[in-house]
């Protein structure tokens, strides 16, 4: 109960800070809109296969996520509030709070990206349930992988470009599965039966990344 309370307090603090500065939200929205508009102008009337549509969607989500998600721990370092958190809370509460915040952020980002994608590129989605499940599981895996890495790179000198570099190799299984599962939800796709393996892979990926992070976070967090 106490633990839940602490994690929720960290989450609530991050949400409040985000709503005041709107740093991450503005950056993510700008990135999603700019990238999708670019795709839209570049394609014009050219028909694009569903596989390419799925890949474009996840390229946009991945890059905007890689840019915006590193903020969670870097901002603590910049404001000098790390010591305060270390003194007042336990590492696992900080991790859980930040993970929840990043998850919510990625989920919002995913929903905005998909809504913009469906409207701007006029994509038909015959299986919205499958697409939403894929987005949720993808967000969980992305947030899980990013949170630990963000905590690691917050301590380094070159904070900015390091997160994408470390993140991409780790995300390869997630990206392959998520694009394939999104493809299955679009017209002419394999549907639920065809996306079963992909969805289970996503559950496995999120599980591995989050359990590994829970085990390793104390070593990163405590000097």
């Amino acid at each position: 109960m106490n633990w839940m309370h602490g994690a929720w307090a960290v989450f609530e603090k991050d949400v409040r800070l985000e709503l005041r500065s709107r740093y991450a939200i503005n950056m993510l929205l700008m990135f999603v809109l700019a990238a999708l508009l670019l795709v839209l102008f570049a394609l014009g009337q050219t028909p694009v296969s569903a596989r390419v549509q799925a890949a474009v969607l996840w390229i946009v989500i991945l890059f905007s996520g890689a840019v915006g998600l590193g903020r969670s721990f870097i901002s603590e370092e910049e404001r000098g509030t790390v010591l305060l958190l270390q003194l007042n809370t336990h590492g696992s509460m900080v991790y859980a709070g930040k993970l929840l915040f990043n998850f919510v952020l990625v989920l919002v980002l995913n929903l905005v990206a998909v809504a913009a994608f469906v409207v701007l590129l006029s994509v038909a989605v015959p299986l919205p349930g499958l697409l939403l499940t894929t987005l949720g599981l993808g967000a969980l895996g992305l947030a899980g992988a990013t949170t630990l890495l963000a905590a690691i790179i917050a301590r380094t000198a070159n904070r900015g470009p390091l997160l994408p570099v470390l993140l991409f190799p780790l995300l390869v299984p997630l990206l392959l599965s998520v694009v394939s599962a999104t493809r299955a939800a679009l017209p002419g796709g394999a549907g639920w039966a065809g996306a079963q393996d992909e969805l289970l892979t996503l559950v496995g990926f999120a599980g591995v990344v989050i359990t590994a992070s829970v085990l390793l976070f104390d070593y990163v967090w405590n000097d």
């Binding site: 299984p173 892979t201 496995g204 990926f205 599980g207 359990t211 829970v214 085990l215």
Partner: peptide, 20 residues
């Protein structure tokens, strides 16, 4: 417990990633 849970998820990940 963490290692056991991680092994379980890793098995799920690799089995299904291969099946794709």
């Amino acid at each position: 417990i963490g290692l056991v849970v991680m092994l379980g998820f890793a098995a799920l990940l690799f089995l299904n990633f291969g099946e794709q």
